[in-house]
């Protein structure tokens, strides 16, 4: 099938590996012959602030930004960031969400309230039918390092079958961009993610 365009929004908190994840996917998309565009958050916005990276690929794309309401997938490395960017989603959009909350220090300093995971889940479920909460930090720890959370999430994306790129192409691309010493851990992280994604897809089909 010819993909005219595919839009993925990857959101999270500065330092969680959003830029690396987008770099991995953009190379994989190139390898499968697509035209590719991304837009990323660098500089001041990275200092623990919210980050959002756009990935678009297909046969008919020019610009780097995704119109609101048109994301195919919102891949959220932190749960509340999925809500912050919910308006990129339409009713069919797949929300693949790390079930971790990172509460900014200023919440305490200013006496503000922060939503809970269940509130977030409930809200997202009103936006889209396809919301998947993933214990990605736990899986990354299981793989051997919390910092492989981004690779776990890429595995889920593949396992759940929501990206038109072959598993092996993404795997090769991961190996290209991670430090050599961490190859085994990242391989495990990717596989754990795929497994998790497959069980979700299995439930969908029941």
């Amino acid at each position: 099938m010819e993909i005219i365009n595919y839009n993925l929004l990857n959101v999270g908190v500065g330092g969680q590996g959003v830029i690396r994840a987008i770099q991995i996917l953009s190379w994989a998309a190139l390898r499968e012959g697509y035209k590719v565009r991304t837009a990323e958050t660098h500089g001041m916005a990275q200092r623990g602030g919210s980050v959002a990276s756009y990935l678009r690929f297909g046969t008919l794309i020019e610009g780097p930004l995704i119109p609101r309401g048109k994301a195919d997938v919102i891949l959220a490395f932190e749960a509340s960031e999925a809500v912050r960017n919910f308006n990129y989603a339409g009713p069919q959009t797949n929300f693949i969400v790390n079930d971790k909350l990172i509460i900014p220090p200023m919440i305490h300093q200013q006496g503000l309230e922060y939503p809970t995971i269940s509130q977030i889940h409930e809200f997202l479920a009103n936006v889209s039918e396809n919301v998947y909460l993933i214990p990605a930090d736990d899986l990354a720890l299981k793989a051997g390092n919390q910092r492989t959370m981004n690779v776990v999430m890429l595995g889920v994306l593949v396992g759940i079958n929501q990206i038109p790129i072959k598993k092996d192409t993404i795997f090769d691309s991961i190996m290209k961009f991670i430090p050599k010493k961490t190859m085994d851990i990242n391989k495990t992280a990717f596989e754990l993610g795929i497994e998790k994604g497959k069980t979700i897809r299995g439930k969908e089909n029941e």
Binding site: G14, G48, V83, R84, F86, P104, M106, L112, Y114, N126
Partner: peptide, 14 residues
């Protein structure tokens, strides 16, 4: 915008 919008306080760089 959905009506039951929950407010996420800003996450500023620090």
């Amino acid at each position: 915008v959905p009506e039951d919008m929950i407010i996420i306080p800003p996450r500023l760089p620090i």
